[in-house]
Design a protein around this nucleic acid. Sequence first.
DNA 1: GTCTATAAAGTGATAGAC
DNA 2: GTCTATCACTTTATAGAC
Lengths: 210, 210
Amino acid sequence: MSIDVDLKEFSRGFKTKKNILAQSLALFSSKGFKATTVRDIANSVGVKQSALYNHFKNKDEILETLVEELMTSAIANIFISKDNVSDRLQGKSLLLSISTTFKLISFDIKNEALFKLLIQEIYNNERVREIYSEYFYQTNVKKLSSLLFEMMQNDIIKSNDPLILANEFFAPLFFYQMQISLFKQDKKSTSAMVSLFEKHVDFFWDNIKS
Amino acid sequence: MSIDVDLKEFSRGFKTKKNILAQSLALFSSKGFKATTVRDIANSVGVKQSALYNHFKNKDEILETLVEELMTSAIANIFISKDNVSDRLQGKSLLLSISTTFKLISFDIKNEALFKLLIQEIYNNERVREIYSEYFYQTNVKKLSSLLFEMMQNDIIKSNDPLILANEFFAPLFFYQMQISLFKQDKKSTSAMVSLFEKHVDFFWDNIKS
DNA sequence: GTCTATAAAGTGATAGAC
DNA sequence: GTCTATCACTTTATAGAC
């Protein structure tokens, strides 16, 4: 009997912690971290603000926890598709698969919120900048340039500086994703913007193919 | 005599107002609007916080004034070069001139601060989003696509959807500019990033030229 | 226009009962 | 773990003397 109650309490507490993180992410990504009060979070969760301090040391620790999630989110893992199909893809198909993974980020609520949090806090929060730079920009550009280099070796694409090509492929994907999140915020149609993901691959591929 | 004093007072007051805007921009762009207190601003200006209220109704009005400056800044006017040389430029030279204007934004302190303010407030401030969307993104992409369309008519470049080309030209410029501002923040070398502005034009031109 | 003083509200965080 | 109550501090903004 007492075990049963303990499990219930444990389960409830666990749920609250997860809920705090979910509501905080929603609030931070739409209002910004500084503009969100611990009372805002508590109200969204449905508890009193003091209850938050049973799960996190302070407001900053909530942000820190969310920021670390950036690393494991789709934003930082555009090369890891669910079924690892991309390993077998070649040339243009591979680029298209990357572009699509990127595009889908905007249509997953959590990933989109993490992206908006990233943009809003990138100038204020050193850790956000670190994760963006290391795990998002550099890792992906390096991975991309080695893939492009391979394609050059196999004469699939023309010889060129792979790092420049990687940047040229990456930059529009990032920009279009930001555009989509902005369009969504103002409830504008995103279809034209979404189609640019595929058109970018077409345009890019035409320029690099042998 | 009394006129002399009045002019002095007027001049001093005018300088204070300009100074408030300058210091606010510096603080907002580095700490964010919400994280900057009116005391922070007053301390930077060298007056007491209550003095600010002789020049602006409240803290929001300071931000609003700065936000309106976005419209007249280089960020929203990349097609208007000082000597209007760009009107006479054709083809690749024209694109290179736009790319260079873009690049120079990052190296002007005020324009860079306005750019950082834009990024940080774009999700929170509707007016910022409006100015970005209308005066920065749309205006420039439309202008670009009509220039590209002209080049197609004159058989300087291959036939293609000019709006897609405009987006493909614009997106990396924006992304590289953001990268440079981030690199600068962490005092990293920006030379590799800066060179991408020219390399982008090369890569882009190779893909569209007849 | 700037200053000192102060009001009025908001904010993060803690103590202790249940 | 959550609640009520409360503290200590910060923040925006105003009033009135100079």
